[in-house]
Design a protein around this nucleic acid. Structure first.
Length: 599
RNA sequence: GGGGUGGUAGUUAAGUCGGUUAUAACGCCGGCCUGUCACGCCGGAGGCCGCGGGUUCGAGUCCCGUCCACCCCGCCA
């Protein structure tokens, strides 16, 4: 047959159904598999839409059967034939009721033997998958993920367009500013010895767009941060970035909430709550030990400092006396499922470096009406035992865990314990999406050197009620008009009201130890812009990659990005980064340290 | 920057106390087979055991170094 083109293709590989029986079809795709029976041969033809079975029959065309028997996996072919009802349907594929009785075949290209099978069930390691990424991307599960990613991007654009947002691109190559994430640098040829930074976010540009009068801006913005990659972090990632003028925190949260509810609807999903619940940062820390709690299950923490004080348990009384924090967590009704072995395992877990490390884990089982069992129970009088049960509303069969440690460690270890227990007890239902706004974040935190630094960024508006505390000894108590959106324990995005009053901005810079001169040098252009009529504004940015992870239930960020980098920042397929040659360096006016590895 | 796990056939893994020809599954190649769909059956090929050094009569195995991948802490969203 002559080389066919797309115009002649009648269906994709998921297009044929019983209604097409008797019609002719011309399909194109990859050979996903061949089952050769000698007298007959079954060929699975695959494209990104699905799989269709093509049958070659010796009794119909022996010459064609001979030709097709030379085909191998991943060859690219076109096939013509008659759509026919299968003798026995295959309900695993959408086209399983029909097959194509082949009449002719055209081979577009041949494939070498692939290094791993192009199937969902591959157990190929990360390295080989990234090296042959184009084959990995051909796997249906990867294609489904990227299709979902494409849909999300499309829906977000549609929804924001409907809400009068305008998509505007901002530069990748920007002015280098210290602080926050480490920047990638791009040497300038035209300005020898000078560098651009790759934008870690469009933050300043989107605020300048507000000054420019574009009162509702958004962008699916690529961001670059030179920090160590993780399972859920890459050097390059994409943000759904937006900013609104004349808007306060409630306006932004309303808008973002509508965006997410509509996005979920478009994806055929739904949230556990019609309106997104809110917690203050302090409530989140007290009840869950983290600023991004997973709300798909309960098991809240209870602060037990007051109980610890008179508990009769020496280690708890000492802990409180030394300013440590005592937290409890009740597992209702399922104490019997926790053997001594499991409890010992949990104790070992909270002692691990990356979990706490907590000094220990106290557990108490409730038996009967208010009687406690456990290693420290005998230290508590019956009255205190009953009081504790009453206080926590515990009954027969409940299990209580207690950790007493430095506040930071108590929070961290109890957060881990809560999530571990939820998984252990099977409390997390499939297909659940539990949203949460966390609000009222601290404005500042202490750096390692003891300096005050912004929790969010220096343009975040302090809570108006806390303004008098700026540049006072109580500065650490200042909260900000910042908000984070959390879904299933993942920080999906965050934003804040921005400062548009130069006087407040000056106070915040002072609070951060940034002098007038330094502020002028770093952000002078922004401060100048604000002198020409700046609307009050506020915004939000969501991590698109993480959003796709949550929606598709993927556990690695690499699996929602077409061409991700390895954990050491290399591209396994292209070999980037590479060492430049001397002529390139000379042109750029820079010199480099010798590479630490061969390239 | 720190800690951990791993690297053996194309892929995924096993390999005991240091000992003869390094094993399996899938894939690949050849043969048989007309209703399979992870087809089946028979046969076969395929190895710098990551790399470099060391210990030893002898190293996939023990030691040192190094590179790569992955996971975690720091950092960061």
């Amino acid at each position: 047959m002559e080389k066919p083109t797309l115009r002649q293709r009648t269906h994709d590989c998921n297009g044929l159904r019983e209604e097409h029986i008797g019609e002719g079809a011309l399909l194109m795709g990859w050979v996903a598999g061949i089952r050769d029976w000698g007298g007959a041969l079954f060929l699975d033809l695959r494209d990104r839409y699905g799989i269709t079975q093509v049958v070659f029959d010796a009794s119909r065309d022996k010459e064609l059967l001979d030709r097709v028997s030379s085909l191998r996996s991943e060859d690219v072919v076109a096939v013509t034939g008659a759509v026919s009802k299968r003798l026995k349907a295959n309900d695993k594929i959408d086209t399983g009721a029909v097959e194509v009785l082949a009449e002719d075949l055209y081979v577009f290209s041949r494939s070498e033997v692939p290094p791993f099978p192009v199937r969902d069930e591959t157990n190929a390691g990360t390295e080989i998958r990234l090296k042959y990424r184009y084959l990995d991307l051909r796997r249906p599960v990867m294609q489904r993920t990227l299709v979902t990613r494409g849909k999300i991007a499309h829906f977000v654009r549609n929804i924001l367009f409907d809400e009068s947002f305008l998509e505007i691109e901002t530069p990748f190559m920007v002015k280098y500013t210290p602080g926050g994430a480490r920047n990638f640098m791009v040497p300038s040829r035209l300005q020898p010895g000078m560098v651009y930074a790759l934008a870690e976010s469009p933050q300043i540009y989107k605020q300048l767009l507000m000054v420019g009068g574009y009162d509702r801006y958004y962008q699916l913005a690529k961001c670059f941060r030179d920090e160590d990659p993780r399972l859920d972090r890459q050097l390059e990632f994409t943000q759904i970035d937006l900013e609104m003028s004349f808007a306060d925190d409630e306006d932004v949260m309303d808008t973002v909430e509508r965006l997410f509810v509509r996005l979920w609807q478009n994806l055929g999903l739904s949230f556990t709550e019609a309106t997104f619940p809110r917690l203050t940062w302090q409530e989140a820390m007290d009840r869950y030990g983290t600023d991004k709690p997973d709300m798909r299950f309960g098991l809240p923490h209870v602060i037990l400092d007051d109980f610890a004080r008179g508990s009769g348990i020496g280690i708890l009384e000492d802990a409180v006396a030394q300013g440590r924090m005592v937290k409890g967590l009740v597992v209702p009704g399922r104490a019997a499922e926790f053997s001594r072995k499991i409890l010992d395992e949990l104790t070992a877990t909270v002692r691990r470096e990356e979990v706490g490390p907590a000094k220990g884990l106290i557990w108490l089982k409730v038996e009967g009406s208010g009687e406690l069992k456990g290693p420290v129970a005998k230290l508590m009088s019956p009255e205190i035992q009953t009081a504790l049960c009453d206080r926590l509303g515990m009954h027969d069969g409940d299990l209580l865990f207690i950790i007493a440690d430095e506040p930071k460690i108590t929070h961290k270890a109890m957060d881990f314990l809560r999530r571990d227990l939820a998984a252990r007890l099977g409390l997390i239902g499939a297909g659940m999406f539990a949203p949460l706004w966390v609000v009222n974040f601290p404005m500042f935190e202490r750096s390692e050197e003891g300096q005050w630094v912004s929790s969010h960024h220096p343009f975040t508006h302090p809570s108006p009620a806390d303004l008098p505390l700026l540049n006072t000894p109580r500065q650490g108590e200042v909260k900000s008009l910042a908000y984070d959106l959390v879904i299933n324990g993942n920080e999906v995005g965050g934003g804040s009201v921005r400062i548009h009053d130069p006087a407040i901005q000056a106070q915040v810079f002072t609070a951060l130890g940034i002098g007038d001169e330094e502020a002028e040098r770093l952000f002078g252009f922004l401060l100048e812009a604000f002198r020409y009529g700046v609307p009050p504004h506020a915004g939000f940015a969501a991590g698109l990659d993480r959003l796709v992870m949550i929606v598709t239930g993927t556990d690695s960020l690499r699996d929602v990005i077409a061409f991700p980098k390895t954990v050491s920042g290399t591209d396994a397929m292209t070999g980037a980064p590479t060492a430049p040659g001397a002529p390139q360096l000379k042109e750029l006016g820079i010199s480099l340290a010798p590479p630490q590895r061969s390239v």
